[in-house]
Design a protein around this nucleic acid. Structure first.
Lengths: 131, 131
DNA sequence: ATGCATGCAAACTCTTTGCAAACGC
DNA sequence: GCGTTTGCAAAGAGTTTGCATGCAT
């Protein structure tokens, strides 16, 4: 991901490096708040707004993905390859499904009780493409 | 849906009836704002908060679904059966996929250019079930 | 008559923005 | 040195809540 920052012509600031390290290897899809709290210990002057803008910057550069699959804060995903998720109705937790589960063939995560399965197409609608 | 209100022991107020009529047959997944604007003409004293609380009440009674699949305002769906959606990256529009598209077999809507397909499991995670 | 529902405003959560100071390149 | 990035605070979007009044049952 750090290579990606450099490749996108973005500056390698201590804040950005710390944010990348804080979630690049984390499969739990932390929120901005959670990432901010992890960093506070090491970089006490870190601003919450910087966490947001940096994550936005990473997402705009295609280096991470923003997941908004349920109400509540957005979750950030270092895995930009298309893949499915199990979403908890009560806490909003996001758990990766293995593989490019375009079809619902992947087994749900251990202990997860499935209430519904749905398919989502992401893309551009006809109206937006017309512009 | 009105039957459902009665069956759930909820009062049939003019506001609730108007809200139900405003989106019960609407496949476009309006936001609370959009529903509110439709009602304003007929019920000028209608409060925006009433729209939210009523939609919450309907959802809690299982009479509609709240869809939060992308950033921005939640969208309300009168179709509570599990089904898939096409989500526009740029405007957030939600378009129904036909059938119980548990598997990605449904054709995308006309004019929609698909960038990615993903599967979502909804349910209860192990941690929440433990409580 | 009773208690749930409404309307209003204010609070709250999550995210973005404006601007001066600081820093990477 | 130049232009981007940071930190802070304030603003903005979206949603929820408290409380007095009103209405369905």
């Amino acid at each position: 991901m750090i290579e990606g920052l450099r490749g996108a012509g973005l500056k390698l600031t201590p804040q950005r490096l710390a944010i990348v390290e804080a979630f690049a290897d984390d499969p739990t899809h932390p929120t901005a708040q959670e990432i901010f709290e992890r960093l506070r210990r090491r970089l006490p002057t870190m601003s919450f707004a910087t966490v947001y803008t940096t994550l936005d910057t990473l997402a705009a550069a295609g280096l991470c993905a923003v997941r908004a699959l349920s109400p509540g804060p957005a979750r950030f995903d270092p895995n930009v390859a298309p893949h499915g998720h199990a979403v908890c109705d009560s806490c909003g937790a996001l758990i990766d499904l293995p593989g490019r589960a375009a079809r619902a063939t992947a087994a749900p995560p251990a202990g997860f009780v499935v209430r519904a399965v749905e398919t989502i197409y992401r893309g551009a609608c006809a109206r937006c493409r017309a512009r």
